[in-house]
């Protein structure tokens, strides 16, 4: 189902705030061979879609249908309200740079032995042909033992996709437990060293 979008002719903070109060989200559509166009999308319709960054959808802009990818979502940190969306139009034969989330499945052997699963790289930047886009990379971690590491180069990435991350970057590892002090630290009254003090004395 296509996401309905209305062309936005007015710009500015006041207009955007008024629109948000009325359940509309300001957005922009751009891309190769497409003139940038300002839009409004309905928040209610958007909530029904899976509107994460990297999601591909059809935009119905006043009669014409455009295939686009969600490039950016601006969210208000304190309330979680959606402030603005960026759509990038997809043209056949082109590539898109997308941040794809890594999803892990299974319970690692190392965790059963008492280790801690450290999920370090949660998303990777990829250059993907626009006709072969995917929304997540699923990694099975059930065979990971204590000290085992999955790097970016070990990820199941389809052919034709260029990885823009460092291949040696750690994605998941099983670390051993560190025993940590629980007791409250005693209150210290000492003051830190003041850097500027010594310098002044030298000048005099």
């Amino acid at each position: 189902m296509a996401l309905e979008a209305i062309k936005r002719l007015e710009k500015g903070t006041r207009v955007a705030r008024r629109a948000r109060r009325n359940g509309l989200v300001p957005a922009v559509l751009y891309g190769k061979g497409v003139d940038p166009v300002c839009l409004y999308v309905s928040l209610k319709e958007l909530r029904q879609e899976h509107f994460n960054v990297g999601h591909v959808l059809d935009l119905a802009i006043q009669g014409s249908l455009v295939k686009a990818i969600i490039k950016d979502v601006q969210i208000e940190p304190a309330t979680g309200a959606v402030l603005h969306l960026d759509f990038q139009a997809l043209s056949a034969g082109s590539t898109v740079t997308v941040t794809v989330p890594v999803v892990i499945t299974g319970e690692p052997v190392g965790v059963k032995k008492g280790g801690i699963l450290e999920f370090i790289t949660r998303e990777v930047e990829l250059e993907i042909p626009s006709d072969r886009l995917f929304e997540q990379i699923v990694v099975d971690v059930s065979n990971l033992d204590l000290g085992d590491i999955i790097h970016v180069r070990d990820l199941p990435i389809p052919e034709g996709v260029k990885v823009l991350e460092d291949p040696d970057e750690v994605v998941v590892t099983i670390a051993e437990q560190e025993v940590e002090e629980v007791a409250a630290e005693a209150e210290t009254v000492s003051e830190p060293e003041v850097i500027s003090k010594g310098k002044k004395e030298e000048e005099e």
């Binding site: 210290t188 003051e191 830190p192 003041v194 850097i195 500027s196």
Partner: peptide, 11 residues
């Protein structure tokens, strides 16, 4: 407790 080790100015 958390506090800086060195500071440029006292206040």
């Amino acid at each position: 407790m958390l506090m800086p080790k060195r500071v440029k100015y006292r206040k």
